[in-house]
Every structure is written in C-alpha cells, then in structure tokens.
Amino acid sequence: MSQTRLRAHRPARPLLYLMPAIALLAIFFLGPILVNSVIAFTDMGVNLRVGQFTLLNFERIVQRDGRIPMVLMTTLIYVGSTLFLFNVGLGALLAMTTTAIPEKLGNFFRGLWLLPRMSPAVLYGMLWIWIADPTPSGLLAQVTIALGLPTVNLRNDYPLMLVVLANGLVGASFAMVILTSSIRSIPAHLANAARVDGASEWGVLRHVVAPALSQPIRFITIYQALSLMTTYEYILLITGGGPVYDSTPYALYIYRRAFENGAYAYGAALALGLMVIGVVITLLQWRLTDMRSTFAAPKIEVL
C-alpha cells in the first residue's frame, strides 16, 4: 500500500477538449459572420474595393428593391410546402409504412429513398432536368406523348413545383430515418395495450405512434426549416431560379444578387437579413414547442 498513492479525482479541463470545436466554429462560422456583417455596411462590388461605409444596402432592401416581397413569398411557399408535404409529411409516412411491412422489404425501401441523398447533387439535378425536359426525349414528355396529352414544360410553367418536388424527395429521407428509429423504440406492448383497450389500427397510430413522434418531428421541423431556407443548390442546378425570378427563394436571391450582379455588399446585407430571420424562427419554435424538455441529462460526469 505504501507505494500506491490514492489520487484524488481531478476535474477535466473542458476548455482543452473543446478547443478544436471552438477553433472550427470561430474560423468557419463566427469569422464569416463577422466579415459578412462588415461587408454589409460597405459598397463592395466585384473589384472587392471598399469605397465607403454606408447604410444604403439596408435602405435598398427595405425601400427600393421591388423583388423582395415576391422573393419572400416564393421562400414561404418553397420552404413551407417542401417542409410540411415532404420533409416532415412524406418522411413520417415513409417511416410508418416501412416499419409496418416486413423488415427486409422496409429496409429495402428506406435504402432506395436514401439513394438520391448519396448521389452527387449535379447528377440529381441533371436527372430532374431530363424528367422535366419538354422535348420528346424528356421522361415526362414521353409519358404525355404516349398518353396523347399535351406536353408541359415544368421548368417554365411550374418551376416552383418542380423544385419543391426535387428537394422534397431528397429531404424526406432525413425524417424517415429519424422517425423510423422513434417508431422502433416504442414498446411493442403499448400498441397491444391500445388494441385491448379498444383502439383500431388507426387508433394505435393516433394514440401510440403519433405521440411518440411529436418530439422528433419538432426537431426535424426546426432543423429542416433552417436548412431549406439557406440551401439552394438543386434550385440553381434545375431552374437556375427562373424563369426570371419565379423560382428564386431568398437564399438563391442572395447568391444571384451577389455573384450574378456583382453586388457583394448588397448580398452581404441580404444574408444578414436571412440570419436574423433564421434566429427569430428558431427562438420562436424553441419557445412554442418547449424544446428544452427534450434535453437529457449527461450520461457521464465530467466536471
């Protein structure tokens, strides 16, 4: 016993272990926000030169940019319909149906739905362009011709619907995976108890499955809403935001203003606006859905 010294528990050094994460956050998250915020108050263009510090960009957003109301409307329709119809609705439907069928078949279907997420965005975009192509080589055109129906040009006539479809079919797999595991974690006897208590299969879905999904759906809603508001790669690839600005949501509008029109400073100011919208929506949802209650106590004691 004389050689072995009993060492008292030493508190961990959280700062040391968190350093890599903090550094990454600072360089790739806080840094850009800071740079963006500064640029937003300048007149920077493609030559990257700052002539003066000004509030003109914000004045332009609020008063002079006539496209803003339409872009906001497009964003609302795009985010709202993609989110509720596909990213949550279809995802939940897929989770429920693929867990109700035999396990192997369910796994197969879920794997199938994950495929577009794994394929490169450009390839996926090309696929949709081919589907929507109005010439006789397009997939939809081939179907309409075979059925003797008039040809529709989706990219031109229904661009927003097309981007909602393209984004939604990829986006649904996120909720599908999360909700599948939520459904699997419901104790089997809970459904049996409901059946014995008089519930039909719909009743089981409503009283046992739905309550178990409400918490993860809250998380998916908030997460996917933010992600839909800020990403635009499929839209850029499939419709380019057009015709004109018909399928341009806010995030793509920022890109087009900044890089198509060369108005860097104006783009930065718009981006700042998107950030404010994102923070407001997050805080609102946090408040409305009591997200804190979903937090679990840590499993290990560090400090």
Binding site: P187, H189, A193, G198, H207
Partner: peptide
C-alpha cells in the same frame, strides 16, 4: 378491441404522454 378483456402487461405499458387519469380513462374513449 371487441373482446372486452382487460390486460395488465409485465411492462405495464402505460401511455407515457397521458396522465394517470387519462390512462385509466383511455379504454372508455372507445
């Protein structure tokens, strides 16, 4: 649901989102 049997499961299988009152009242909903 049409047999009118009552069952107590080993794991109790109470509905976690309902209060005790709502749990007990659950069979009467139907």
């Amino acid at each position: 649901r049409d047999r009118n049997v009552g069952i107590v499961f080993q794991s109790y299988a109470l509905y976690p989102n309902l209060t005790v009152r709502e749990n007990i009242a659950f069979p009467l909903r139907f």
